[in-house]
Computed example of a mutant assay.
Amino acid sequence: MTNKIFFTPGPSELYPTVAKHIQSALEDKIGSISHRSQQFKDIYAHAEAELRTLLQLPDNYEVLFLSSANEIWERAIQNTVEHESFHLVNGSFSKRFYQVSGELGRKATKYEAPFTQGFDAASIHVPATAELVALVQNETSSGASMPVAEINKFREKVSPDTLLFVDAVSSLPIPAFDFNQVDSVYFSVQKCFGLPAGLGVWLLNNRCVAKAEALQAKGVSLGSYHSIPAMLSKAKANQTVETPNVLNLYLLGKVVEDMLQKGIETIREEAATKAQLIYEYIKVSKNFSAAVQEQAHRSVTTIVANTILPASEVNKLLAPYNMAVGSGYGDYKEKQIRIASFPAHSVEQVQALVEKLQELVG
C-alpha cells in the first residue's frame, strides 16, 4: 500500500471517499450486475441527477456517458459537422481535436496561439461557415485557461446555427458555466472528479441533438453505435448502447453526491485558495517560473511551471516524502512540471507540497 499523494494532472489523486465507495460496490457486487437491469438503471439515473444538480444543468441539456473525452471528439465531429469545424488551439489536446476533424474528412480550420498562451475573444474571427467551434476552457498540456466570460463572448461571434463546444476535461466542476451561452461541455472523470480513468461525460443541448438528427435525415453517416440519436434513445431509459463502465458510473454518482454535501461554492473557493498558494510560491521560487504569463489565463486546476531542474529530478526529490507532480507534456516533459490542484487535493496537502518544494529546490 502506498501513501503517495498524486498531484499529477490525470489520472490523479482519488477523491477521499472513493475507497469507501469501492468497498460498498464490492460488497454489493456492482461489477457483476447486468447493464440492462433495474439496479443499473437506478445507478445511471442517480449519477445523472447528481451531475445535473451539481452543475445546475438546464433542462434542454442531455447527459451521455462514453469511454473518454477523446472519444467525444470523434463523436462530436461525426454527429454535428457535415463540412467544417473551427478550433482554438493553444496546446496538445486542443490541437488533437483539430486533427481529429481533419482525419474524419471534414475541413478543419484553426486559430492557434503559442503554447501556454490564452485567447482574447475580440481578436478572433470565426468563419461564418463553421458548424462547430471548439473552445478550450482548460488546456491540460499547457495550463492555459479561458475565463468563462471570454467563452460567453463567442455566442455573438458565430452564426445562429453554429455549435459551441467547450473542453473542460481538467477543470469541471470548478468553472461556473452559463450553459445557455454554449451548446456542449465535456470532461473525463480521472481529473477533477477524482475517479479512475475510463469514463467520459458529454453534456449537450437540444441544438446538438437537432443537428445530428438533421444530418441523419440527409443520409450522412453518424457512426454506428455511438450516434447521438442511438445513444440518446438508450439514455432516455437510463441505459447505454453497450456494456459501460458500471463501476465508474456508480462511483461518479457517489462522489458527486459527496461534492454536493460539501457544497460547490466551497469547492470553488478552495480551488482558488490552492491555486494562489502554488502561484505565489512559483513567483518567488529560485527553480520555477510560471509558464502562463498572463495571470487571467492561468489555470486554477492545472498549474504549469517552467523548471530549471529536470522534472524527473524534482519527482526523485519528492519521492521519499510520498508526493508526485506531473512532468511537462510532450516536448516540455523535462522542462516543465504540471501540478494538479483538483477537488481531491486538500488545502493542507497543497500547502505541504509547496513547503516541501521550497525546502528541496528553493
Rank of each mutant, 00 (worst) to 15 (best):
S170K: 14
S92W: 02
T129F: 07
H83D: 10
E82D: 12
V169H: 13
N79H: 07
E156I: 01
E103A: 10
L135I: 07
H83M: 02
N152S: 10
D161A: 12
A76H: 00
F93T: 12
T109N: 08
K95S: 02
A76P: 00
I174F: 11
D120N: 15
H83V: 08
V81E: 05
S85T: 02
L164F: 02
K110S: 13
P173G: 13
F177A: 03
A128C: 09
R75S: 11
Q117T: 11
A168W: 13
N90H: 06
S170D: 15
E131T: 04
V166S: 14
T140M: 15
I77K: 00
H83C: 03
F165C: 09
N90S: 09
Q117W: 11
V158F: 01
N152V: 02
K107C: 05
S171V: 14
F119Q: 07
P173K: 14
A128D: 15
S92C: 03
E139P: 04
Y111K: 09
L135T: 06
M146C: 12
F154A: 02
S85P: 00
F154G: 03
N138T: 15
S145K: 06
I151K: 04
S123Q: 15
H87Y: 01
G143V: 06
A128H: 14
P173I: 10
S145L: 05
V169G: 12
A113Q: 15
E150F: 00
G143I: 02
L88F: 10
E82P: 03
K153Q: 10
P147K: 11
P114G: 11
K107P: 02
P175L: 08
V133A: 08
S159I: 01
V100C: 10
T162D: 06
R96Y: 11
I174M: 12
F115Q: 08
V148Q: 01
P173F: 10
V148E: 02
V166D: 13
E84Y: 00
P147I: 12
N138Q: 13
I72W: 05
P175V: 09
P175R: 10
